[in-house]
Computed example of a mutant assay.
Amino acid sequence: MAGTAHSEPSSLYAPSALVLTSAHGESVAATPQRAVTLTCAPTATGTHPAPKDACAALAQVKGDFSELAETTRGEPRFCTRQYDPVTVTAQGVWQGKRVNYEHTFSNECIKNSEGSSVFEF
C-alpha cells in the first residue's frame, strides 16, 4: 500500500518581506535615492536601519501603510511648510498578502514624522 505524502510547511510564519524606497519628487517615476529591505517574519531583519521598530510599527497598523501616521498622533512635530515633495514606496509581501504602496509627503520632515519608523532611512 502506498501512503499519501504530506509536505510540511517550510515556515509557520506568513512571509513579510518588503522593499522600501524614497525619492525626491511627486511620483514613483522619480529616481529612488534610497532603497532598503525589510523582513519581519520570523525575525526583523534587512538593510533597514531599524528593522525591529519598523516591523513593530507595521504590526501596530496591521500592515496598512496609510494608517502609519496614526501611530505618531499626539507626538510633537515641528516641520516647516516648505514644499519639497518626497515619494515613498513599499513593494513586496506583508503577512502573505501582496503590497504595492506609494505616497507623496510634502517634505522630508513630514515623511519622517507621519511615515513612522518605517520610512526613516
Rank of each mutant, 00 (worst) to 15 (best):
Y83F: 10
V28S: 10
P76C: 09
K97F: 09
E75P: 00
E108M: 09
V61L: 02
Y13N: 10
A59E: 06
V19E: 10
F65K: 04
A59H: 03
E70G: 05
L68Y: 01
E102R: 15
C40D: 04
L18Y: 07
A57N: 10
C79G: 03
D64M: 06
F121W: 08
R98D: 14
P85Q: 10
H48N: 11
Y83S: 05
T39F: 07
A35Y: 09
A90K: 04
A41N: 11
S10M: 13
S22T: 08
F119Y: 07
G63T: 00
Y101H: 15
P49S: 08
M1E: 13
Y83Q: 11
S10Y: 11
D84M: 14
I110Y: 00
V118H: 03
E102V: 11
P9M: 07
I110F: 02
A35D: 09
S10F: 11
E75Y: 00
N112W: 12
E67R: 14
A44S: 04
A56V: 05
L38C: 09
F105G: 01
V28L: 06
D64R: 11
Q33Y: 10
P9T: 14
T89R: 02
M1I: 13
T4K: 12
A90T: 06
S10E: 15
P76F: 07
F78A: 12
